[in-house]
Amino acid sequence: MRAIELFAGAGGLGIGVSRAGFNPEAVIEWDDYCCDTIRENQARKLDPIVHWPLFHGDVRDFDFRSVRGDVDLVSGGPPCQPFSLGGKHRGPLDDRDMFPQAIRAVRELKPKSFIFENVKGLTRASFANYLEYIRLRLTYPELVERRAEAWEDHLARLERHHTRGKHNGLHYHIVMRTLNAADYGIPQRRERVFLVGFRADLGIKWNFPDKTHDQDALLWSQWRTGEYWERHKVAKRHRPEGGKGKARAFALKEPPRLAPWRTVRDAISDLPDPEKNPDAAAAFHNHRFQPGARSYPGHTGSPLDEPAKTLKAGDHGVPGGENMLLRPDGSVRYFTVRESARLQTFPDEFLFHGSWTETMRQLGNAVPVDLAYIVASSVKTHLDLTATPAKNKP
């Protein structure tokens, strides 16, 4: 199936989408370092990136009408700084807001479906009206703003159009949900908003994939069965006391149905410690100790035996707490690039271009590869069924 990838970044969403069976006709990214990362992995013949037709430039300069033939999927993560809790919170007033370009892509390409991802901050009360504006513009992409029309006036016009009833022309059925990556087997508590739409004429009925992993299942495996510690060969004398997590585990009446959340230890335990064993760590790509980590209130690192906190791109450099490992003895160190890539489920063969700070920015902005694959695979399954409508059941 044919796809267009917008705002590709380092490629997390795009790798997952490609693995799900979509073949990109264009992969669009303006950032020099991100493009260098993609090119470096293309030069190393890394699938599926080697086949990506990269457009290095501003999406505003891309002519979507140059894409010939039907497009099955448009995907991307419009730059999130206008809505990020760690940013300036300017929202629609921020010229970095690229949702208008995502909407233009949908209007001009008329894809069968789209997947857009953004930070949880987009759902803040202060952005509620603008989020509804985005949703309605994606629902009716051909109902464009008029010259000098304020976005609030355009929103009102879209609302009137939406409430009138039956609609002809290009429009989409959209669902939106905040997903926690940890609930899908990613070793990171990473909450992101996904907007998924299907062209209305296809008649597709879809819902987000059910979560597969669970916090209670992790606590059960740690404190009721001990399987977690035994698997990692952690002696009883070296296990933490447990605290509230242990109490919660013993309050459970029966074993949870889902798989346990994956932890930092699950993700990186087979990697040499880059601080204590730098020679062994050098055998792994991008696995180099970065000095200078320190803990302070609100920035205390990610505990080894829980999913990591959300990796952050940072505004001026990398914030310490979100990108640090908190060891059981209370000491901290920065995650290496390779460890951070593990937490974002990038393959170990994937190389990042740039300094530690720059590569951590790429990782902090990325969509976990495995989460992208899960959502995109479900979308593709339902698109496949449109070829045999009788099988397309709710």
Rank of each mutant, 00 (worst) to 15 (best):
residue 1 M to S: 15
residue 3 A to F: 09
residue 3 A to Y: 05
residue 4 I to K: 14
residue 4 I to G: 07
residue 5 E to Y: 07
residue 8 A to C: 12
residue 14 G to L: 07
residue 16 G to A: 03
residue 20 A to F: 02
residue 23 N to I: 08
residue 25 E to A: 13
residue 30 W to L: 13
residue 33 Y to C: 07
residue 54 L to M: 07
residue 60 R to M: 13
residue 61 D to R: 11
residue 65 R to I: 04
residue 71 V to I: 15
residue 75 S to D: 05
residue 76 G to S: 02
residue 77 G to E: 03
residue 78 P to F: 08
residue 79 P to L: 09
residue 83 F to K: 01
residue 86 G to M: 12
residue 86 G to I: 08
residue 92 P to K: 02
residue 94 D to I: 06
residue 94 D to E: 03
residue 95 D to A: 12
residue 96 R to H: 08
residue 105 A to R: 02
residue 115 I to S: 10
residue 116 F to L: 14
residue 117 E to T: 03
residue 135 R to K: 13
residue 136 L to D: 02
residue 138 L to I: 04
residue 147 R to L: 09
residue 148 A to W: 13
residue 151 W to S: 03
residue 151 W to M: 06
residue 153 D to E: 15
residue 154 H to M: 06
residue 157 R to A: 11
residue 158 L to C: 08
residue 159 E to P: 01
residue 159 E to K: 15
residue 164 R to W: 07
residue 165 G to W: 06
residue 166 K to P: 10
residue 166 K to L: 13
residue 167 H to Y: 11
residue 170 L to P: 01
residue 170 L to I: 12
residue 171 H to C: 11
residue 172 Y to P: 03
residue 172 Y to C: 08
residue 177 R to T: 06
residue 182 A to D: 00
residue 184 Y to E: 00
residue 185 G to C: 04
residue 190 R to H: 07
residue 192 R to T: 01
residue 195 L to V: 10
residue 201 D to A: 06
residue 207 N to W: 09
residue 208 F to D: 00
residue 218 L to G: 00
residue 230 E to S: 10
residue 231 R to M: 12
residue 232 H to M: 06
residue 234 V to M: 15
residue 235 A to P: 03
residue 237 R to W: 08
residue 241 E to T: 12
residue 242 G to E: 07
residue 252 L to M: 07
residue 256 P to R: 00
residue 263 T to Y: 01
residue 270 D to L: 14
residue 271 L to Y: 13
residue 272 P to M: 06
residue 277 N to Q: 05
residue 278 P to Y: 07
residue 280 A to T: 04
residue 284 F to Q: 11
residue 289 F to K: 13
residue 291 P to W: 12
residue 293 A to G: 10
residue 295 S to R: 15
residue 301 G to W: 04
residue 302 S to E: 00
residue 303 P to I: 04
residue 305 D to F: 15
residue 321 G to T: 03
residue 326 L to R: 15
residue 328 P to S: 04
residue 332 V to E: 11
residue 335 F to Y: 12
residue 337 V to K: 06
residue 338 R to I: 06
residue 338 R to A: 13
residue 339 E to N: 13
residue 343 L to H: 02
residue 347 P to Y: 12
residue 347 P to N: 12
residue 352 F to P: 07
residue 352 F to N: 11
residue 353 H to D: 09
residue 375 V to T: 03
residue 377 S to L: 10
residue 378 S to A: 15
residue 379 V to P: 01
residue 387 A to H: 15
residue 389 P to A: 09
